[in-house]
């Protein structure tokens, strides 16, 4: 087994060479700045490299999609961000965008078209499920003797209810050497982690419980050893929930991309 270095391709550089990648990978602010979630982005880039996908990131040119601003009511700020991003996409003739954050996915896919930015937006769960189906991503069980992990999947609102994507993440998890168990509230019934709609960036309103604790309890009831997430905010919330419940030693929270990387041992 050897190790290679990955140089993440940056759009400005690639395009200066006169090349155009197949995909723009939109990293998102959490991918750029959240220490825990950076690992997820690194994992996904490993998979892209493993699959020899032609892609590039915007790097320093990327900025917030405007999602928290829009959902908090600051339409002015949202549209400023969106129009700037659309201009950037158009400068690079972007046609296909890969996302890991469901909030970025939803807003670029569903809301940018109103402002003149229409692209084919593909979430990484869709992308991975397709690669598994077409056979280009083969995840064998590398250690058949290793006890199977018990995994439960928390549906992100902006992937699930907002965009009807319940099957792809499960298809990817289904291809991994793990046992998938559902929480009693799952798919369209799934409970929010509590972070959407800009809640991530503010204190919760007064109540008798934190939403993320309620959701963590759902996950704990399944007796899963791994909580799989597919959204940076859900990850923050459920990881916090595990800490709050003093379970962070026995139960881990991984993103689907990280689980794929673990299974591929790359």
């Amino acid at each position: 087994m050897e190790t290679i270095r990955i140089d993440v391709p940056v759009m400005a550089v690639i395009s200066a060479r006169g090349e155009k990648p197949d995909y723009l990978y939109w990293v998102g602010c959490a991918g750029a700045f959240d220490d825990r979630y950076k690992k997820v982005v690194r994992a996904f880039v490993k998979i892209l490299t493993y699959l020899k996908t032609s892609y590039a990131v915007l790097g320093k040119e990327e900025s917030c999609t405007g999602d928290p601003a829009r959902r908090a009511g600051n339409e002015m700020l949202f549209q400023m961000m969106a129009l700037q991003n659309i201009e950037l996409f158009n400068k690079y003739n972007v046609t296909r965008i890969l996302t890991t954050c469901p909030h970025c996915y939803n807003i670029i896919k569903n809301e940018y078209p109103d402002l003149g930015g229409s692209y084919e937006v593909i979430n990484y769960t869709e992308f991975l499920a397709e690669k598994i189906t077409d056979g280009s991503l083969k995840i064998g069980n590398p250690l058949p003797t290793k006890q199977q992990a018990r995994v439960t999947f928390h549906d992100p609102c902006y992937l699930g209810r907002a965009n009807g994507q319940y099957d792809d993440p499960r298809a990817v998890l289904g291809a991994l050497p793990c046992e998938l168990v559902e929480m009693h509230r799952n798919k369209s019934f799934a409970l929010c982690c509590g972070a959407g709609g800009a809640q991530m960036f503010k204190e919760a309103e007064p109540g008798n419980k934190e939403v993320f604790i309620e959701r963590t309890e759902d996950a704990l009831k399944t007796e899963a050893t791994i909580i799989a997430t597919a959204c940076p905010f859900c990850m923050t919330m459920l990881t916090d929930g595990l800490k709050y419940k003093n379970k962070e030693e026995e139960i881990k929270n991984y993103d689907i991309a990280e689980l794929v990387v673990q299974a591929l041992q790359i």
């Binding site: 190790t3 270095r5 990955i6 880039v45 790359i266």
Partner: peptide
Amino acid sequence: WARDLEMNV
């Protein structure tokens, strides 16, 4: 995030 990124082959 992309600094010192390595993978196994």
